[in-house]
Computed example of a mutant assay.
Amino acid sequence: MERLKKFKTAFIIFSIFYIVLGFVLIARPETSARAICRVFGALILILGVIRVIRYFAGNDFADQFRFDLARGILAVMFGIFMLIAPNAVIVALPVLLGLAIIIDSVLRLQLSIDLKRLQYEKWWLGLVLALVTGVLGAMLLFNPFAGSVALTMYIGISLVIDGIVNIWALILLTKHFNNYSIW
């Protein structure tokens, strides 16, 4: 039960982050991508350093198999790369975000089918939203935009929509499953 509450909280925070990041990309497309890349690079670098320190500070045998050292070193390297070469990350960003949105959409598709199996009458809304966000993600993969400003704004719009749909789906699930006492 506690894990489920933590998952819901993390999911909401992640979705709100998507929405805020989307609005930032829409409002300031020409400067926000590089700045966001540097902020993320710094955060990933800090988290990597924390993982490495936690690895060497930990004495519990069970902690040794969480791969904190390896994950920490990789995070430090990726964080440094994002700080040094933000343009390279920006080039790959549409593909990475497109894949993340498509994966999210596939999960939402399964959720809507599960709701249909549970005889929830509005299951089709989840299906429609899964398809819409899937198309948004696919468009990011194929990048039909000529300019980087248009692409950045499209990424922002896609993130806002995906974040809102995620929160809506979580509210819907919570409301529907409260009757089953698993939430």
Rank of each mutant, 00 (worst) to 15 (best):
E2K: 08
R3C: 09
R3T: 08
L4Q: 13
L4S: 13
K8A: 10
K8G: 07
K8D: 13
A10M: 15
A10P: 02
A10R: 15
F11Q: 07
I13R: 02
I13A: 03
I19S: 02
V20S: 06
L21N: 05
L25Y: 02
A27W: 11
E30D: 11
T31C: 05
S32D: 02
A35W: 13
A35M: 14
G41R: 09
L43Y: 05
L45G: 01
L47F: 13
L47G: 12
G48C: 09
V49S: 01
R51Y: 13
V52L: 03
I53D: 04
I53Q: 06
Y55I: 05
Y55P: 03
Y55W: 09
Y55D: 04
F56C: 03
G58A: 08
A62D: 06
A62G: 04
R66A: 11
R66N: 12
D68N: 12
D68G: 05
L69C: 07
A70S: 09
R71C: 11
G72L: 12
A75C: 12
M77L: 15
F78W: 07
M82Q: 10
M82A: 12
I84G: 05
P86N: 06
N87S: 12
A88L: 14
V91R: 15
L93E: 01
L96S: 05
L99W: 06
I101A: 00
I101K: 00
I102Y: 00
I102D: 00
I103A: 15
I103D: 11
S105M: 02
V106E: 07
L107S: 15
R108P: 02
R108M: 12
R108T: 09
L109R: 04
L109W: 00
L109Q: 10
L111R: 15
S112H: 06
S112Y: 04
D114K: 14
D114W: 09
K116D: 07
L118F: 08
E121Y: 07
K122N: 11
K122G: 05
W123V: 04
L125N: 12
G126N: 04
L127C: 09
L127R: 09
V128Q: 05
A130C: 05
A130R: 01
V132A: 07
V132D: 06
T133V: 09
T133M: 08
V135C: 01
A138K: 00
L140E: 00
P144F: 00
F145V: 02
A146E: 10
A146L: 11
G147A: 10
S148P: 10
V149L: 15
L151A: 06
Y154S: 01
I157A: 01
S158W: 04
V160S: 03
V165W: 02
W168R: 07
L170Q: 03
L172F: 13
T174P: 00
N179A: 15
W183F: 15
